[in-house]
Amino acid sequence: MTLYIHELKRGKPALIIWTAVLSFMLGLCILIYPEMAAQIDEVSAIFSDMGSFSAAFGMDQLSFGEFGGYFGIECGNTLGIGGGLFAALLGISALAQEEGDRTAEFLLCHPVSRMYVFRQKLAAVLTRILIHNLLVAVLSLGAMAVIGESLGAKTLLLLFGSYTLMELEIACLTFALSAYLRKNSLAIGLALAMGLYFGNLLSNLVEELKFLKYLSPYAYTDPAYILNEGSLPWKYLLTGAVLSIIALTPAAIHYRRKDIL
């Protein structure tokens, strides 16, 4: 547990900043809803009538006139992009940063195995994501209470749960990449997160690219599906879990054997 606790302490400032910024943005989105609702007919018509753009973001299937639709699209994108980037940054820097900052030698000269380091660091990354999402959800619920809106416990659980799972998958994928890198390459992590995000948008637009939904964790944060079906798209979720395991297993084997330069 020593390394796990050390990692949580070390990651506390970033966790606080990202949680504060995302909660603020999300809170702001929620708090301006009453203003938006006043002009809802006009806004709804504009957003649902933007052709491919509307389809890409699922705006053709949700109504801006309802808080659920508004929250799913506006807040979902904020949480999707922001949370995805946060998860990517945590994952990509977890192992590679030790080598880049030359702290790997300090760490690995102690009587700990590489697998211990891999497991504890992964657990710390996933824990930070869980804490981050829990805090964002609580603060968002607070903002909803202020404007007197709610989506019901099940819908909220599914929405916030889907973003948490999406972030966990991105963290697993970037963490796995981190095992192969020798220095902290934030750009690679951010590019991967953005690639997955836009991959999902493209899959909404182009029929031939529907298969990207199986690769992108953003596929199971689709607010239209969650709100209309009242459940998560389990087939994408399952693929995501399998992808994470497939990425992490060879990464663990590689990290166990890699030269620490």
């Binding site: 070390r10 900052d101 030359r102 702290t103 030698e105 300090f106 000269c109």
Partner: peptide, 11 residues
Amino acid sequence: IGYLPSESGYY
């Protein structure tokens, strides 16, 4: 073992 690297980073 007690190891001192020639150049090491610390947190």
